[in-house]
Structures are given as C-alpha cells and as structure tokens.
Amino acid sequence: MIIHKSLNSIIFNNYLKIIFAFFILFSETIKANEDIIIGYASSLHNVMKEIIRDYEIQSNLKLKVGMGASGNIAQQIIRDAPYDIFISANKKWVDYLEKHQKIKERYLWISNSLSLIGSIKSIENFTLNQNERFCLADPKNAPLGIYSVEAINALKLNIPKNQIIFLKDAVSVRYYLSIKECDYAVTYSSDTFNFDKNIDIQSIPLNLYSDIAYEIGILKNNKQTKHFVNYLQQPNVLSKLRNHGFIIN
C-alpha cells in the first residue's frame, strides 16, 4: 500500500514532466518521414517480407507496408490512405483506382495459379459431407475469390451454399486451412508453398479461370518509388518469386 501511495504521489507531482517526456519520446515519429508505404495483395505476404528485408539492407530506406485483400487496399486508397505503391492481384482494382485518378503509372508484374486443397478423389462425383466446409476468399474484395468462383463453376463442383465460408483474403484462407477449420479450399498455388505434407493439393488447370496477373500501380511518382519498382523487376527478385511458386512471364 505504501509503495502504491508513493508511486501515486510521484506521478501526481510530476505529471507535467511525464507528459513532456512522452512528447519528446514520440516526436521522433511525428517528424515528417520520407519512407515509402506499400500496400500489397495478401498472397504476396511471405515473399514480400523477404524482398523488403533485402531491399532495406541494400538501400538504407525504410519501407512501411499494409497488407490485405487487393480490394480492401484499393478502398483505403480511395479514402486517402497514404500508400505510395499498390500491388494488386488483379487488373480490376488497379483499373478502379485509375478511374479515380489515383494511379500515376502501372506495370504488369507476375502471375499465379490456383490449387484445390482437400482430399478430392473425383471431381465429377464430388460431394461434401454434412459437416465439412469449403473455404473461399470473398470475391467482393479478394481477387482470389473471383478466380476461385470461376474455377469452381468451370469444374462444376457441387457445393451447398451453406457450407461455403467466405474469408476476407488469401492469407486468411491459408490460416484457417492451417488450423483445419476448412476441409476444402481454393487458394493460390504460391500459398501452398511449404504447406503441411498431409494436406492434399491439386493444381487447377490454368484455362479454367482468367489470368491471375499481379499489377503494380505507382501512386506517388518520385525517385524512391521508381527505384523500388525497378528493384521488383530484377532477376534475383523474380527468381525468389519463382521459388515461392509464382509464375514469371
């Protein structure tokens, strides 16, 4: 109790100093910074961590990142989120930002493919047991969802509506698969990279869904953003992406 009281009185008598100290501590972060902020599709998460780490060592620049469904990031940009570079898993969301005059330059980057997860013996006679769940990314915001729905329709997979769970982006599909909340799912082949060996993975033929093309949109045209986008096109970065299961054109 005595300790409590003395601590209280210390705080009470010195509160102005404490507030001042907080200001000094955080003034560092208030300073205008020249970092680049990158928003990218969640399917790039694992590989982007490596790419960004390498780039930071090499360039001495600090990168800040935001990750999510491409549609979500596009929505944030429309509402003036301070991203400098946007990497989308489809053309649609870059088009959408271009229509709103947010995109200065755009580049086609890499591709991906889809995989069907879960023990499926025959696609023709595919049925779900009553308690099984099929996870898909939400086509509203996640490009993965749009591609997955195309693929499922082309495969004529018969999935009862109430057994589909729509998850917000590619990363959450991967997470809920890993904790076995989803029995089946459609996800990017790049996300099956270093997956549990016990999980069945089948790749879905490329002609069953539209091309999965990642596009880079530059929102603020300056030296730093140009430099980073150039870096993303370099052979060693591209080969890293290939190792993670992406398709390099």
Binding site: N72, Q75, I78, K140
Partner: peptide
Amino acid sequence: LPLAIYSSLQDP
C-alpha cells in the same frame, strides 16, 4: 450489424 457495416464499408 457491425460485421455487415464493415463489409459494406469495403464495397464502393
């Protein structure tokens, strides 16, 4: 309700 609001917020 809050989840529906969140979802709709992301739909232009």
